[in-house]
Design a protein around this nucleic acid. Structure first.
Lengths: 203, 203
DNA sequence: AAATAACGAAACGACTCGTCTAGTATCGTA
DNA sequence: TACGATACTAGACGAGTCGTTTCGTTATTT
């Protein structure tokens, strides 16, 4: 018995009974997003979501276990695939741009729910798992591929621990946002990327 | 008019009226710590703290604005000064040990409240300020001093942005704990420290 | 038409927060 | 000794949130 999953994924076979209302689903997700945007995490309550979406609370709970799950779904739904920066001359430059974009995303209204979710998942193992599955792991796969591709092209020396490398690049950015509160400007991004690539770039 | 501050600091002059109960203060702090240790952040409510401390709720609210503030006070009170690792042969080694200790601290019961506080402060600017003042800034000062000392001794080349350096070292550790959930083992610590020192160590 | 399942409205119990009221205890000072 | 100031206990309070549940309704398949 699993948690009811929002949406049927690829299973579009008609089932007996009244079908799920796609309109309600969308209304709930965008209501959650709007409430967060206008008042932060504190303004998002399940009652408020239901009211703003013009939907019954029972409908919310039928498809999501709690408000954090709704927010996660909303974030994942609006998540654009990572850009590939095709015109960047080097992998180092790709990462530089990728990192600057991520920092911008996380520090503006669009990405703020991600920060709230990271905070919320600290005390909620179930949410932590779903955050990993639906947000972190897919992104990580893309970043790993970028590194692997760089090695394949001979731009980098073989990298022993790709995850460690990525953590060294992304860690300082998230750290500033979550812990120290210092601004993540381009200079900092450059410093971080340069430091990480110094040892692995073939020159 | 400021928030009531727990304790009088160095001001031990007798004041008019009934003096504050040190016993109550200590009971509250250790009750909060015990509740957290036994049931996590969710088990810590102001009512529970008061009950466990054998104290009235009004007494808690007289001295702390909310439960997070109690927890912060409790963490800061039990915070040992950073070790100086006097017998470490190099600054790199000092950081290596310091970092490994921090990782151990944050991933065991003793430091778990720090993670909860970092999570809580994301939605609470007041708490964020106090966390910075009472936890982050003092620690940072010590780390900055370690770096400065290394430069003075000629062990490091002059460091342009000390904070950036420290963020590059600590960032990946906090990142793993807060975001990715991957384990912070000695190998990872070594990789991080080595990468950061590569460029700045005089050899 | 029957079976099925989602829907809306709304109430529920349990909990938490932060405030507040009363009455009491313990201190300095007049 | 009386008084003012302050901290304390006990507990009620209103407001809000969470997640569940009930009940009647609606849409779709069989």
């Amino acid at each position: 018995m699993t948690t009811p999953t929002p949406g049927r994924g690829l299973d579009t076979r008609a089932r007996r009974g009244r079908p799920r209302s796609e309109a309600a689903r969308r209304a709930i997700l965008s209501a959650a997003e709007r409430l967060f945007r206008e008042g932060g995490f504190g303004a998002v309550s399940v009652d408020a979501i239901a009211a703003a979406a013009g939907v019954s609370k029972a409908t919310v709970y039928r498809w999501w276990p709690n408000k954090a799950a709704v927010l996660l779904e909303s974030v994942v739904g609006r998540m654009r695939p990572l850009a590939d920066y095709r015109d960047a001359p080097t992998l180092r430059e790709k990462f530089r741009r990728q990192l600057a974009d991520t920092a911008r995303y996380l520090t503006t209204a669009e990405g703020a729910p991600v920060i709230a979710l990271i905070a919320a998942k600290q005390g909620d193992p179930q949410l932590a798992r779903e955050f990993a599955e639906r947000y972190a792991i897919p992104r990580r796969a893309r970043l790993r591929a970028m590194v692997t591709e760089g090695v394949r092209r001979g731009e980098l020396r073989p990298v022993k621990d790709i995850d460690a490398l990525i953590d060294m690049i992304y860690g300082p950015i998230y750290y500033r946002i979550l812990v120290t509160g210092r601004p993540v400007d381009d200079a900092f991004v450059d410093t971080v990327v340069d430091s990480a690539f110094e040892r692995i770039e073939r020159r």
